[in-house]
C-alpha cells in the first residue's frame, strides 16, 4: 500500500470512530434519564390516583423532577454534537 492509501484508510477509521462514538454516547446516555423519568411518571400517577385533589401540585413537581432527571441525557446530547460537529 502507498502512503496515500494508508492516510485514506486512517481518515476512514477516524470517521468510523466519530460516528460510533456519537451514536454510543447518545444511545447509552438516553437509558438513565429514560428510566428515571419513567419512575417519576409512574410514581406521580400513583400519587394522583391516591389523591386526585392534589393533581395540580403533583404535576408541577413532576415536571420539575423530570427536568432535573433529564440533565445527564442533555449532557450526552451535547457531547454527541461536539464529537460529530467540532472534533
Amino acid at each position: 500500500m502507498g502512503i496515500e492509501q494508508i492516510t485514506e484508510v486512517g481518515q476512514g477509521l477516524a470517521m468510523l470512530g466519530k460516528f460510533l462514538g456519537a451514536g454510543l454516547c447518545m444511545g447509552l446516555g438516553a437509558i438513565g434519564p429514560g428510566m428515571g423519568e419513567g419512575n417519576i411518571g409512574a410514581h406521580a400517577m400513583d400519587a394522583m390516583a391516591r389523591q386526585p385533589e392534589m393533581v395540580g401540585t403533583i404535576t408541577t413537581r413532576m415536571l420539575l423532577a423530570d427536568a432535573v432527571a433529564e440533565t445527564t441525557g442533555i449532557y450526552s446530547l451535547l457531547i454527541a454534537f461536539m464529537i460529530l460537529l467540532t472534533a
Binding site: 427536568a67 432535573v68 433529564e70 440533565t71 442533555i74 449532557y75 446530547l77 451535547l78 454534537f81
Partner: peptide, 16 residues
C-alpha cells in the same frame, strides 16, 4: 457547573 450546564444544554441542543 451543573446549574449552568443544564440550562445551556437544553437551549443549545434545542437550537441545533
Amino acid at each position: 457547573i451543573s446549574h449552568s450546564l443544564r440550562l445551556f444544554g437544553n437551549i443549545a441542543g434545542g437550537a441545533i
